[in-house]
Amino acid sequence: MSEITPDLVRHLGVLARIQLSDAEVERLTGQLDVIVDNIAKVSQVATPDIPATSHPIPLENVFRADEVGDMLTLEQALRNAPDAADGRFRVTAILGEEQ
């Protein structure tokens, strides 16, 4: 017996605020039913003695170590800024404006 029915698909469409045509409901009913069946098959073989995996091979960090390097001075950082004040970039305030 199928777990996914057209009525369930219509209900999910309403919850997701998606208007579905009858053809879309029919197509999605079949597709979702196949997905649920495949999940059930995986659940049958996924027993507690089989560890969960998120990736088929172990991943390693390929980034270099962080090292402190040459940094810009405050003057260098603000040199090309269109506007600066008190050692900071000065930008137009946008909070509270109507959009």
Rank of each mutant, 00 (worst) to 15 (best):
P51I: 09
G96W: 09
E24I: 01
R64W: 10
P82T: 03
V91D: 07
P51W: 11
I4E: 03
N38H: 07
V36K: 08
I50N: 09
P51H: 11
L32K: 01
E24F: 02
A46W: 09
T92M: 11
L74E: 12
A46G: 07
T73K: 03
A52C: 12
I57E: 14
L8P: 00
L32M: 15
A81L: 02
A85V: 10
R90H: 13
L95T: 13
I18S: 04
E97F: 05
E60Y: 14
D66L: 07
D49E: 15
A23N: 11
R64D: 15
A81W: 07
A81Q: 10
L72G: 01
G30W: 02
D83E: 13
V91T: 14
D22V: 03
A65R: 08
R17E: 12
G13L: 00
Q44C: 05
V9C: 01
D86F: 08
P6A: 01
F89T: 02
E67M: 08
L8T: 00
D22Y: 09
V91L: 13
L95H: 12
P51Y: 12
E98L: 08
H55P: 00
E26Y: 06
G87W: 07
E75T: 09
L72N: 05
I35K: 05
G13M: 01
L8G: 00
V91I: 12
P58T: 11
P58V: 09
T53R: 14
N38C: 05
L32V: 05
L74F: 02
T5S: 12
N80K: 06
T29K: 01
F63G: 14
M1E: 08
H11E: 10
L74D: 04
K41N: 09
T47F: 10
P58Q: 11
E75D: 15
A52E: 11
I18Y: 07
D33K: 02
V9R: 00
L72Q: 11
P48R: 10
V9Y: 02
V42I: 15
K41P: 02
D37M: 04
N61G: 08
I57H: 09
I39L: 14
V9N: 00
P48V: 08
D83G: 01
R27L: 14
E98H: 08
I4L: 03
R17D: 13
D86S: 10
G96T: 08
Q76A: 07
R88I: 00
E98M: 04
I94M: 13
M1K: 09
L74W: 02
K41F: 12
T53G: 08
A46T: 13
E60D: 13
P6Q: 02
Q19F: 00
V62C: 09
N80P: 00
L32I: 07
H11T: 06
L72A: 09
L8S: 01
V42T: 10
V42P: 00
D70Q: 05
V68A: 13
I57N: 11
D70G: 02
V14D: 12
A77K: 06
L15W: 04
L15Y: 03
I94D: 06
A85I: 05
E60N: 11
A40Y: 06
A93H: 11
A16L: 12
G96N: 08
A93C: 03
R27T: 10
E98K: 10
Q31Y: 12
T92A: 14
E67P: 00
Q76C: 02
L8Y: 05
S21Q: 04
D33G: 13
A46M: 14
I39M: 12
G30H: 10
S54Y: 15
Q99D: 12
T47N: 06
S2A: 13
P48K: 08
N38I: 01
L74N: 03
